[in-house]
Each structure stands twice: as structure tokens, then as C-alpha cells.
Simulated assay, not measured.
Amino acid sequence: MLISAASRDALEGWLIHRKSLDGVAENTVEAYRCDVLGFLTFITSHFGDSTGLKPLARVKPTDMRAWMAHERKRGVAARSLARELSSVKSFYRWLAEREGFEPTAVLATRSPKFQKKLPRPLAKDAARAMIDTVDTQASKDWVAARDAAVLILLYGCGLRISEALGLTFADTPLPEVLRITGKGGKDRIVPVINPARAAVDRYLAEQPFPMQRDDPLFRGVRGGALSPRVIAKAMETARMQLGLPATATPHAMRHSFATHLLEAGGDLRTIQELLGHASLSTTQAYTAVDTARLMEVYDNAHPKGLKHG
């Protein structure tokens, strides 16, 4: 059953609100749309009523449980369902304030429990071996130089794969610091290590395509923008050669940057800023820090009189 025009308009209105006022990234907006549209479709079918917004205002806890059971039955994992519920609650807060109804039944719904997966960084020697292997396995020298340059940006500068592949020719030669626009359109300043600059220079000297200022820095073999999947595939081949686990992905290189920086004495707040995390708790999980190391960081950060006893 199709949702009502009023429900669809409400969904689009909320998405515009999130994007314009809250600075939500386009990919996140699309995820929100998918999550809430699925919920609206279920509720419309559940009530057998596709007229106006009235069905949304009379949702009860039993209806929420029915929706969650429906999602689990069709194979949605607990983690994904928790994300869907979070999107639905955000939509309902906005809609209830706009339409003047009581959203407690939705907002009080408990999120399903799930085991949070901590990221698995590579060991230092494994990270270096990954870069070296990727640098030698491609059939074309410029492709090998390209893949190595991307991985060095992930591991040496802590960039997300989307951020590295979002660089343009105008960003070269790479400066000592880069202004990176990350998730949610938030800018941060990232120092660029000498090996990263050298790797990009080598790639530029070998790649065969003409470059204009606005062209993507990293190109595919046909000259278009490089796909993240190509880098993931290169790492997949390399990790099989090196005997590394399936967790050795492009994102693991960013994890490794954070973990190894902390091990070398970096403080969590600085690493948080370098990674572009909104919350320090995200950085703590990201770096797989043990309690002893955390207490050492806290000891170094606090005045002597405030140290734990």
C-alpha cells in the first residue's frame, strides 16, 4: 500500500529541515529517507489507511512492536534496526511539534540491544606491509603508485576513504596541512606527513591523464574518478598475500592511524580533532584503548591535585 501524499510531504519536509538546518550530509539524508519511508509504508499497511497524517498520530506501543517484529522477520539485524528506530524517532519529534500530537509511544520505544563491534586496527608492521604490497601488485606502475598514495593518506593522515578520493588536482602539491570537509560538512585541519606528499607527487608524475583544477586527484584506469571499491579490492588481494584477516580494509588503515598515534603518546582530544569525531567516546572506541592507557592519558591531562587516587 502506498503512503499518503501528506505523509510523503511530511517526510520530505523533515529531510529538508535536517539537511538545511542541521548540516546533515547527502548520504545520511538518503539513509534517513530509506529508514523512515520503510516505517511509513509499514504503518500505512498495518492500519489499512493511507489518508492524511492521522494514522501516524495514533501509533501505539503495540504498533511499534509490530513494526520491529516485522523488520526482524525480514532479516534486519539489531544494529540496523536500532538505526532505523533512531531515524523514526527523529522524524516523529519534528512531526509531532509541527502537527501538535503526542509522540510518546514512538519516542519511548526501546532500541534493540546489540553487541558493538570495536574496530580492529592493523599492527604497525602489517600496515606498512599492506602499503608495500599494494605498491607492487598492480600491472601498471602508475596504478600501483596511485593505490599506495591513497593508503598512505588513510594511514598517515587518518583520512576517510571518501575524503582521500574527494581530493582534487587543485589540492596539489599537497601542503603541510589540508582543510578536509568531513561528515556533516564539518571542516578540520589535518597535517600531511612528508611520505604522503612524496607518494602523491610520485603518482602525479606517473599517471597518464591531463589534469584540470577541479578534476579528481585519483583517477580510475579509464580516467574517471577512482571508486572506493577499487582500493578495497587492491587491499583484499594484498591481505590474502600477507595472510591478514578480512578486517584489513581501507577503514582499518584509519583505525590504525588513530591507534598507533595514541600508542606513540598522542592524547585523545588531539586524535579526536584529527579524525573529525564529534564525540570523544567515538574516538575511544575507534582507538581500542585499554583502561590503563586511558588512565595514563587522564593523569597527564589533569592537574596533580585532581589525579585519581
Rank of each mutant, 00 (worst) to 15 (best):
V230C: 06
A126Y: 05
S7F: 04
G38H: 09
A199H: 06
I43T: 06
A25M: 01
L85G: 01
I43G: 06
Q272W: 01
L37E: 07
Q284V: 09
R146I: 00
K116D: 04
L159M: 15
A285N: 09
P61F: 13
T259Y: 05
Y298F: 09
L107N: 04
G23C: 10
T44I: 10
K89E: 11
L56D: 10
R239I: 13
N300G: 10
P173A: 12
Y286Q: 01
L167N: 05
K233L: 11
L244D: 04
A225I: 09
R219M: 12
K73H: 11
G309M: 08
W94R: 03
Q212K: 15
A248V: 10
L40G: 02
D49N: 15
T259I: 10
Y298P: 00
P208F: 05
T249N: 07
S139Q: 11
F39L: 08
A57V: 04
T172P: 03
V289D: 05
W142S: 00
F42S: 02
L174Q: 02
T172E: 07
V221D: 03
G100V: 13
T172K: 07
H46G: 04
K233C: 05
S111H: 11
T136G: 12
R79A: 15
P119V: 00
H260W: 02
E12F: 06
D9L: 09
H251N: 08
A278I: 08
Y286L: 08
F101E: 08
D214Y: 07
S139L: 01
G243S: 12
T136L: 11
F91D: 00
E71Q: 14
D9E: 13
K54Q: 14
P191T: 01
A5D: 12
S50N: 15
L178F: 04
K117M: 10
G266N: 03
L226Y: 01
A5T: 13
F209D: 00
G52Q: 10
G305H: 11
P173H: 08
K19P: 01
F114K: 12
A252N: 04
D22F: 09
V297N: 13
S20T: 14
H277A: 09
G158L: 00
A198L: 14
L159I: 03
A301M: 14
V297E: 12
G305V: 11
I189M: 13
L95A: 07
V150M: 07
K307P: 05
E97H: 14
E84G: 08
E97A: 15
T283C: 06
N27I: 03
G184R: 01
T28E: 05
G23M: 12
V230I: 14
G52E: 11
E97K: 15
F101V: 06
H277I: 14
Y92K: 09
A149Q: 00
L159Q: 05
G182D: 06
K73Y: 08
V221F: 04
T181Q: 05
A278C: 02
L2I: 14
I180D: 01
V190P: 00
R128I: 13
D171L: 10
L275A: 03
R120Y: 08
G184A: 08
T291I: 14
R83I: 12
A6E: 15
G100R: 14
T249R: 02
R197S: 14
C34S: 12
A199N: 03
F101N: 03
L85M: 12
G224W: 04
K124A: 13
G309F: 10
A248P: 02
S86W: 10
R293D: 07
A10E: 02
F218V: 01
L204R: 12
R83A: 03
V230S: 03
R293S: 09
S20L: 15
